[in-house]
Every structure is written in C-alpha cells, then in structure tokens.
C-alpha cells in the first residue's frame, strides 16, 4: 500500500470535517461477474445457451467492475455515527492487576524450589525393597509353606513357569532367585527414584501419597495388566497381601526419602545463572 492509499484508508474525520469517512462504493458487479462465470460452467451440464447467457452476464459484470476501479476508484462518504451510538472510550482500571509470583499463597504453580537428592531415591527404593520382600516372604512362609514362593512367582515374569506346578513354586531355585532379585531390585530402585522426583511436587502429606495413593494405584495397574504380562503370576497372587506389600514399600521408601536433606534447585535462579553465564548482577537478582 503506497502512502496515498494509506492516507485514504486511514483518513480521519478531522482531516475532512463534515464529510464523513470515505469507503469503497457498493456495487453489484462482482456478484454479476460471479453469476456469469457460474453459468458458463453450469452450461457444461445443462445447455450451451446457459453458458452463452452466462458469458454475456460475466462480461457485463467484468466491465462494470472495471469501471468501478478505473480510471478512478469509486467511493462513498459514510457519515460518522451519531454520538450516542459511538463506542465509549476505554476506561482505565488502575490497580486491578494481580501478578503471579512463584511460591505465593494461592498460586497454583508448584515448582519445587528445593528437592530431595536423587541418591535419596535410590536409598528409599532399597529400603522399600527390603520392606516389601519381608512382607512377601512372610506371606509365603505363613500361607504357602515356603518363603521362596513369591520369589519364584516374580521370576515367572521373565522365564517360563516351572512345569511341575505349585510344588516347584515352593522349591528353592538359584536361577529364579537371581532373576527375582534382579527384577525386584531394579523396579524398586526406579520407583524410589520416581518417588524422590515426584514427592516434593505433591501437595499435602507425603505419607498419604507415598504410603497409600501410589501403592494403591500401582496395585490397580498390576491387577489389570498381570493377566497379560504373566498369567502364571496372576493365577497365584493373593491381592490383599500384594497391596499390603506395596504399602510397606511406599511407607519405607517415603520415610527414607522424606528424611533426606533437601538441596536447592535452579528454578528460582535467573536465566543467566542457570545458563552458566558470567552475567553482572545475576547473583543479586
């Protein structure tokens, strides 16, 4: 848009007192041109006369359109609205702005300004693993007549279950012990790590989340998926004890993690410090 066009488009009433604002003049010629062109196409599926008449209408529309813009573009002057219909000035509302601040009461963003070290997650996972194993072996000793029963059951996640059936599940098997320990230790350490990362971000009591909510959720996931992952294990699991063992894990891991000394995160640092730049005044900020 050149300067003159811009001037026309933005002409103000003050520049043309009493004359209103200049806008493109209404015209039916674009409609005529469109009608004619459509009829030209419609003639292909109706009759050649439709196309012929359409071509004439299109030419008339095109010529009229041409005359609308050449040699001079046609305009009308539209008067300003009556004062009572005009838009009211936008009113200022001083002091009505709330600024969200990190950590401010009522602010729903929960970024951990400090958190547990990752090593506490591993320690918590290890503690939880011991607690869970104790519960599981207690169950095995009391109700299955063998503390190796839960170990063999866990190993059936990775290896085919013994063909001898339940008797074999109660027998000691060094390979199954190794596999069971591997599964138990790796899962426990990973879950401990997740606890360490998540617990500081959850509102309310850590014991509730770590000791009750998370074990129940995990139990629900296991209950719905175990049939697919290990039909053998699903057949023999006693779900009440399973939930108790999960809660034991959660409580033990939660306590160990919660007692660990927290370290400060970089969330509240200025960008320059986080990026490791030598920026003047960064530390003061």
């Amino acid at each position: 848009m050149n300067e003159e066009q811009r001037h026309e488009a933005t002409e103000t009433p003050a520049q043309n007192p009493g004359q209103g604002i200049r806008l493109p003049a209404p015209t039916a010629t674009p409609m005529l041109f469109a009608l004619g062109l459509s009829m030209v196409f419609a003639g292909l599926v109706t009759h050649w006369l439709v196309s012929s008449v359409g071509a004439l209408i299109a030419m008339a529309g095109a010529y009229g359109w041409w005359r609308q813009v050449l040699p001079h573009e046609q305009h009308v002057r539209v008067p300003l609205q009556d004062p009572e219909k005009r838009a009211l000035p936008v009113e200022a509302r001083v002091g009505a702005v709330d600024h969200l601040q990190l950590g401010e009461g009522g602010h729903r963003v929960r970024l951990p300004a400090d958190m547990h070290p990752y090593t506490s997650g591993f320690r918590g996972g290890a503690a939880g693993a011991v607690a869970m194993a104790l519960v599981a072996m207690t169950y095995g000793g009391l109700f299955q007549g063998s503390i190796w029963f839960p170990v063999n059951l866990l190993a059936s996640l990775l290896v085919a279950p013994p063909a001898a059936g339940e008797a074999a599940l109660r027998a000691f098997d060094v390979a199954n012990l190794g596999i069971g320990l591997f599964i138990h230790a790796s899962l426990s350490l990973l879950v401990g790590l997740v606890y360490a990362a998540l617990l500081p971000m959850l509102p309310g009591r850590v014991a509730l989340w770590g000791g009750v909510v998370a074990p129940c959720l995990w139990s629900a996931v296991a209950w719905t998926s175990l049939e697919v992952l290990s039909p053998e294990m699903a057949q023999h699991v006693q779900w009440g004890w399973f939930v108790v063992s999960q809660i034991a894990f959660g409580l033990a891991a939660g306590v160990v993690i919660e007692r660990a000394e927290r370290s400060q995160t970089m969330q509240t640092w200025p960008l320059a410090l986080r990026a490791g730049l030598e920026a003047g005044g960064g530390e003061d900020a």
């Binding site: 050149n2 573009e73 046609q74 305009h75 009308v76 008067p79």
Partner: peptide, 15 residues
C-alpha cells in the same frame, strides 16, 4: 492513487 467520489453520495448522508 487518485480517486473519485460518487456525486450522488458525496458529502451527504446515505439515506
């Protein structure tokens, strides 16, 4: 770009 106002509408309110 010059322009021409329609005399019919120029300087008067559109009825």
């Amino acid at each position: 770009m010059s322009s021409a106002d329609l005399p019919l509408h120029a300087s008067v309110e559109v009825p």
